[in-house]
Design a protein around this nucleic acid. Structure first.
Length: 159
DNA sequence: GCCAACGTTGGC
DNA sequence: GCCAACGTTGGC
């Protein structure tokens, strides 16, 4: 059995929910609701409690990694999909047969200053990073341990 | 089951 | 604001 820790990246638009929103929450913890893509969902399914992921701001200039979050609750049904008043409502997902799921994450570490996409691109060690590939639209993706540790080192963060 | 049309994402 | 790339939808 492969018990090696995996690493992740959570993409979000700071206008909707960003690092500053996370910091204001009780225990700096949130549901990662609203994922409506199967591949991203499957990535969340693979997450184990305690694993770490980057918190990435997209659709802003420049795009940034703000810091690190930790998975504090594993994969469970996204109840926002059951709520008619939620923008994440989906009639095809029911409590009996849920289609969409989420995890809970908590702020783990804030980078002394955010890492821009430009900075990531400047390192050949990250040349194959999924995030940097053209056309990647996944909102929840895997980061290799090598890449993850390399990026943490850019800000002298020990994990 | 194919695939064109469409809507969305997201960097630039 | 542009537009390439992608995922989803739906007619056949």
């Amino acid at each position: 059995m492969n018990t090696e820790k995996k690493y992740w990246l959570f993409k979000t638009e700071p206008g909707t929910f960003g690092w500053d929103h996370l910091k204001l929450l009780k225990n700096k913890k949130t549901h990662w609701e609203g994922v409506r893509n199967y591949q991203a969902r499957n990535n969340m399914q693979a997450m184990k409690k305690g694993e770490l992921g980057f918190f990435y701001h997209s659709v802003v200039r420049p795009p940034l990694i703000m810091g690190i979050v930790q998975v504090v609750k594993e994969f469970y049904p996204d109840f926002f999909a059951f709520d008619k008043d939620s923008k994440y409502y989906d009639i095809r997902s029911t409590p009996e047969n849920p289609r969409w799921f989420m995890v809970d994450v908590k702020l783990y570490r804030e980078f002394s200053h955010p890492i821009t996409r430009e900075e990531l691109k400047s390192h050949s060690a990250l040349a194959n990073m999924t995030l940097l590939k053209r056309g990647t639209r996944l909102s929840v993706m895997n980061v290799t341990p090598k890449e993850f540790k390399f990026i943490c080192k850019l800000r002298d963060v020990e994990i």
